[in-house]
């Protein structure tokens, strides 16, 4: 019960985007959030990260209301990987990952060699070693995504919120990053596009029209019927002969 949401809602100009979400994330688990475009995944992630204030309900971290906590204390617990965070600044990879140490530093408690070690580890974990001096503008989309993840890791959070972290990544890095997240001793909430990736999460939540319509272990939640109802496609389940895991194949509904 490290992170919980009660009656969580957010609307813009009277139009509800997220409505009445109750959610409890357990310590150490990896929770996948799936849903079609516009189902409120990104908004949900921002509400959980506390960078958007809910219009109803609240979010609690370790029992404490998120909105009452200083941003700095929140950032020491929660790291958030946004979608499409871009910059026109001429910053380097090292500069970007160093930012992850921000919540742990003050003008009176400056950068120390310990911070250098943490940043180096984060770069190693995301397979970005040797890229330190590269400028942001020269990176590919996938490399930028990995740098963002490295920054989130450098924050040394207890909770990782990742909004579509496998976007722009090649197959190898998609797998290695999901694997890394699963192995990290942290609680993570991951918004995912690919239902096959969601299968490997501990639990999966399904968002539809801003509501949480299902929550539970992947094989219970991701049924052919629900996928048909929520995503509007016909799914068939195949079994991988290599390890016996299930996977989906999709067909247009008709």
């Amino acid at each position: 019960m490290i992170l919980e949401a009660h009656g969580l809602g957010w609307s813009v100009r009277g139009k509800p985007i997220v409505t009445g979400v109750d959610l409890v994330v357990n310590e150490g688990e990896t929770l996948g959030l799936v849903g079609p475009n516009g189902s409120g995944k990104s908004t949900m992630m921002k509400l959980l990260a506390g960078i958007r204030q809910p219009t109803s309900g609240d979010v609690r971290v370790k029992g404490e209301a998120l909105r009452a906590m200083p941003r700095r204390a929140v950032a020491q617990l929660i790291a958030f990987l946004e979608q499409q965070a871009e910059t026109t600044e001429a910053i380097t990879v090292k500069d970007a990952v160093d930012l992850g140490r921000t919540p742990w530093l003050t003008p009176l408690q400056p950068w120390s060699p310990k911070d250098d070690l943490i940043v180096a580890q984060a770069l190693a974990d995301t397979d970005m070693e040797g890229f330190e001096r590269r400028s942001w503008a020269t990176l590919s989309g996938g490399e930028r995504q990995r740098v963002h993840l490295a920054r989130a890791l450098a924050q040394q959070p207890q909770i990782l919120l990742l909004d579509e972290p496998t976007n722009h990544l090649d197959v190898q890095h998609q797998l290695s990053i999901l694997d890394l997240v699963a192995k990290l001793p942290v609680t993570s909430v991951v918004a995912l596009h690919d239902l096959n990736q969601a299968v490997s999460c501990d639990r999966v939540g399904v968002l539809s029209g801003g509501r949480l319509v299902a929550l539970g272990p992947p094989h219970e939640v991701l049924t052919v019927e629900r996928i048909g109802a929520v995503f509007g496609v016909r799914a068939s389940i195949l079994t991988d002969p290599a390890d016996g895991t299930h996977m989906f194949r999709f067909h247009p509904a008709s």
């Binding site: 921002k46 990260a49 960078i51 950032a75 965070a85 930012l99 921000t102």
Partner: peptide, 18 residues
């Protein structure tokens, strides 16, 4: 450091504890 944290925008800065 707060100004550094704005490199990726205000939301990113907020998630970094600013």
């Amino acid at each position: 450091r707060a100004l550094d944290a704005f490199a990726f925008g205000a939301e990113s800065a907020s998630s970094l504890g600013i």
